[in-house]
């Protein structure tokens, strides 16, 4: 079992002092490397101080692995410098794209999961792993468009990507729930079909209905984790066992204690599957 199979929190600047001072057992934090690609200053100093006490995960949002352009070498180099400096226990990126033609679109954009896309993304994941000298985890996206032209289902595509590159998976349970709602598939079937051995990390976050009036759910990271997503998480844990699990919150950010209570809940659920209720553990 992974030694860090405990729950962590997305690190927000407003919570630096509390994250540093927290005595919570097993707490780890995850940072977006793009927010630390600076020459100096307080953010790097805080991350350094927290890293002395806690494991850190680096979760990239900007490498644009599913673009039809190569990953930006300067961005990859900056990511490499952060990984060297902070020695994260996990590094992850998304099955999505955002950079094209000199424009960065701060979102995680979709693509048809074709064989050609698989070739290109596998090459890009390979570039990333070669540059960092380590395995990375790739996260399933939240989807909003019923695209046609796929050669693979998402789980098959991810499984094939791991087979070709040796990467692992970051399973975002909220993204599964949101995509299942938006595209009309069964979130339970998806969760049940993910190969457990490939999952190196789990993400939990909140979503919201589209205030534009459609029936879409939006992966806002602006609310507590929804009950239905907790239920999917428990279903996953019962099948594959504990994994490092992150509570993500990037908008409408509450106090540290509120996020810690969600984080503690994930930790308790993992403890429950380690020693299931109703079974007496004899020393």
């Amino acid at each position: 079992m992974n030694p860090q199979a405990t729950a962590g929190l997305g690190l927000k600047p407003q919570h630096y002092p509390e994250a540093l001072a927290s005595e919570a057992a097993g707490l780890w934090v995850e940072a977006h490397p793009e927010n630390y690609m600076c020459a100096g200053g307080p953010r790097l100093a805080w991350l350094e101080a927290i890293r002395e006490r806690r494991p850190i995960s680096l979760h990239g949002v900007g490498l644009s692995l599913a673009s039809d352009e190569d990953p930006d070498p300067s961005h990859l180099a900056a990511l490499g410098r952060l990984a060297d400096r902070f020695q994260p226990f996990l590094v992850s990126e998304h099955l999505a794209w955002s950079q094209r033609g000199g424009v960065y679109r701060p979102d995680l954009l979709p693509f048809p999961r074709t064989r050609a896309a698989l070739d290109r993304i596998a090459a890009n994941v390979g570039r990333m792993q070669d540059a960092l000298g380590r395995q990375v985890l790739i996260e399933n996206p939240a989807l909003y468009l019923p695209l046609e032209g796929h050669d693979f289902g998402e789980v098959d595509f991810l499984r094939e990507l791991t087979r070709r590159t040796g990467c692992g998976l970051l399973l975002d349970v909220n993204n599964v729930y949101v995509s299942a709602n938006n595209l009309g598939f069964s979130a339970e079937s998806y969760i049940d079909s993910v190969p457990g051995a490939l999952v190196g990390e789990v993400h939990l976050a909140g979503h919201a209905p589209d205030d534009g009036g459609s029936s879409l759910l939006i992966d806002t990271h602006g609310r507590p984790v929804a009950p239905a997503v907790w239920a999917l998480y428990e279903r996953l844990l019962r099948r594959i066992g504990p994994r490092p699990t992150l509570i993500e919150r990037d908008d409408d950010i509450p106090g540290f204690a509120d996020l810690m209570s969600e984080r503690d809940r994930a930790d308790r659920l993992m403890a429950d599957v380690r020693s299931p209720k109703g079974q007496t553990v004899h020393a």
Partner: peptide, 25 residues
């Protein structure tokens, strides 16, 4: 070719997220 049916609501979600992300910064 990839979106023959109505699915424009999803495009607005991407547009809004992209714009919001830059405005937030």
């Amino acid at each position: 070719p990839w979106l023959p049916a109505a699915g424009g609501d999803g495009l607005s979600v991407y547009r809004n997220t992209i714009l919001k992300g830059a405005i937030d910064v």
